[in-house]
Design a protein around this nucleic acid. Structure first.
Lengths: 251, 251
DNA sequence: CTATTAATGATTGTTTTTGATTGAATTTGA
DNA sequence: TCAAATTCAATCAAAAACAATCATTAATAG
C-alpha cells in the first residue's frame, strides 16, 4: 500500500469513527506501528486530524480547522528551513512582531510556547497563533483581500504603541542599491515601523528575491539580519554579507 | 477507551443528568476513580463542567462562557431567521458595525453588495466579508480565543474613530431590569461604544436569552431594536416591547 | 547498473497514562 | 461539637504509548 493511499485510508477512518486507536490503524493498513505514528504526525501537521494519546481523532472545534491560506501554502523546503531557523531565534518572554506573509506563516508551528507575546498584521497568522494559545495582538485597520493583512491608518496607529525584542518580516525584493522593497506602499509603511520599533530585525527571504526591486521601499539593509537559503552565489553572499548580516540555512 | 472518548462521555453524562457522582462515572467508563478525578480536574480547567464534592455538575454561573462551538449548534433555525431579517435592514451605502458572534455571523450571506462598508471586531466575520468582496475594517487589539473577537485598548481606540448608520450586536442576556449583559467586561465595552456611535441600534437575540443576566452590563434597552424569534410569552413581549422596540421574526 | 535518497519496521530508552495506596480534608449524622 | 464515613489530593510503581534511532529495503536518479 502506497503512502498516499494509506494516508487517505487513515483520514477516512478517523472521519468515520471520530476517534481511532493506533492498533486499529495498524490492522486496517497492514503497516507497522512506527509507520502509522509517522503518518499521524504528518497528517496532524497538515491539519487533517488531531493526534491523541493512543490514536487520533477528528478536528472538532471551529478553532482547530485550517484557514484558506494554510491549505494553499506550498511547503517549499527552502521556506520551511528559513522559517524554522527564524523561529529558533525566539527566546522565552520575547515580544515579537511577525509580518503577514507565507514565509513568516511557516514559522508558527515552530514557535516556542514560553510566554511569548506576538503582534502581527496577518489575520491568518493571528488565527493560527491563537490556536496555539499564544498571546496575540492583531493590528486593526482595513483588511486587504490579497494578503489577508491589515494596513492603513489604524494599523499604523496601533503598531506605534508597541516595542519589540525582535521582528520578522517577509519581503518581495532585496537589492544592494535599493534595499528592501515591496509592491504595496501601505504594507511597506507597516514594515518600516516594525523595523523601527524592534531591537533585532530579521528578514526572511528565499534566495530568488535577491537583486530584485519592487515599487515601495521598506528600508536599507544595515542593521538587519537576512535569513535565506543556500541558493546564492559566492559573489552575492559577499555583497549582501557586507550590507547586512546574512544567515544562510540549508534546506 | 481513549482519554478524549472518556472525556466526551463524561461531559455528555454531566449535561444529561446535571449532576453525576464519581462512582457513576467510574462505572460508565470502566476507568478507575483516580483517572476520573484527573479527568474532572482537566474538564473543569477547560470549563466544560464544575467539580463538586462527590462528583461533577454542569456549570451555569454568570461568568462562565460557552465556547464558540457550543453556541453554534443551538438554535440554528431561530438564529438564521433573526440574522436574515437583520441583514434585510441594511441599505446601499450604509456603514455598519457587526459584532463578533455566531448570530451576527449568520447575517453575512444575506448582506447586500451595494457599496456598504463594514466594521467588525470578529476575525472570522472579517474573513467572511472579505471573501465576499465587501469593504471591511477589522478592529485591532488582543485576540480572544473563545470568541475570536478583538478586545482591549486598541480595539476601543480604533472603534472610536468610526460612526455608523447601523450597528448589529449579539448579546448573552437581556433583562428588563439589567438591560443588555455579556460575560466579558472587555467585550461589553466594545459593544457599548458601538451602540454609542450608531444612528440605529439592533440587537440580535434568540428568545431564551431573555430574562437572563450575565456579568458585565452593556447598556439599557432604550433606543434599541431587539430582533428575536417567536419564543416569548405574550407577557414578555409586552414587557420588553415597552422597554425597547421589539421585532419578532418567525423561524 | 550503481549511487543516492526515501520509506519502512524493529529496537531503544523516555514520557505519559493509569490504578493503587496513603494520609489529609470534607461531609454527615448523632 | 465530635467522630465516623466519605471524598479528596498527592505519591508511586506498573503499563502503555511515545519519539528517536538504526539497519534494512524499496524507489529514484545518474
Amino acid at each position: 500500500m502506497l503512502t498516499p493511499e494509506r494516508h487517505q485510508l487513515i483520514v477516512a477512518l478517523v472521519k468515520e469513527k471520530d476517534i481511532v486507536r493506533i492498533h486499529e490503524l495498524v490492522e486496517a493498513t497492514g503497516a507497522s506501528e512506527s509507520t502509522i505514528r509517522r503518518d499521524l504526525s504528518e497528517l496532524e501537521e497538515q491539519r487533517l486530524l488531531k493526534r491523541v494519546h493512543g490514536g487520533a481523532s477528528v478536528l472538532q472545534s471551529k478553532i482547530e480547522e485550517p484557514t484558506v491560506l494554510e491549505k494553499s501554502v506550498k511547503h517549499e523546503r527552502e521556506k520551511l528551513a528559513i522559517a524554522k531557523y527564524a523561529a529558533s531565534l525566539i527566546k522565552p518572554h520575547d515580544s515579537i512582531f511577525i509580518d503577514a506573509g507565507t514565509t513568516t506563516y511557516q514559522m508558527l508551528p515552530y514557535l516556542p510556547y514560553d510566554n511569548i507575546m506576538v503582534v502581527t498584521n496577518g489575520v491568518d497568522i493571528a488565527l493560527q497563533l491563537i490556536k496555539r494559545n499564544i498571546r496575540t495582538i492583531l493590528l486593526g485597520g482595513e483588511l486587504k483581500a490579497a494578503t489577508l493583512s491589515m494596513v492603513g491608518r489604524d494599523a499604523i496607529t496601533a503598531l506605534s504603541q508597541y516595542r519589540f525584542d525582535k521582528c520578522f518580516l517577509g519581503t518581495n525584493g532585496i537589492d544592494q542599491h535599493h534595499g528592501l522593497t515591496t509592491p504595496d506602499p501601505d504594507e511597506a509603511y507597516v514594515k518600516q515601523l516594525a523595523l523601527q520599533f524592534s531591537d533585532e530585525r530579521f528578514v526572511l527571504s528565499d534566495s530568488d528575491k535577491f537583486s530584485r526591486v519592487t515599487f515601495a521601499k521598506v528600508g536599507d539593509l544595515q542593521g538587519i539580519t537576512v535569513i535565506t537559503d543556500d541558493g546564492l552565489s559566492e559573489e552575492e553572499q559577499q555583497i549582501y554579507g557586507r550590507l547586512s548580516t546574512l544567515k544562510v540555512v540549508k534546506a
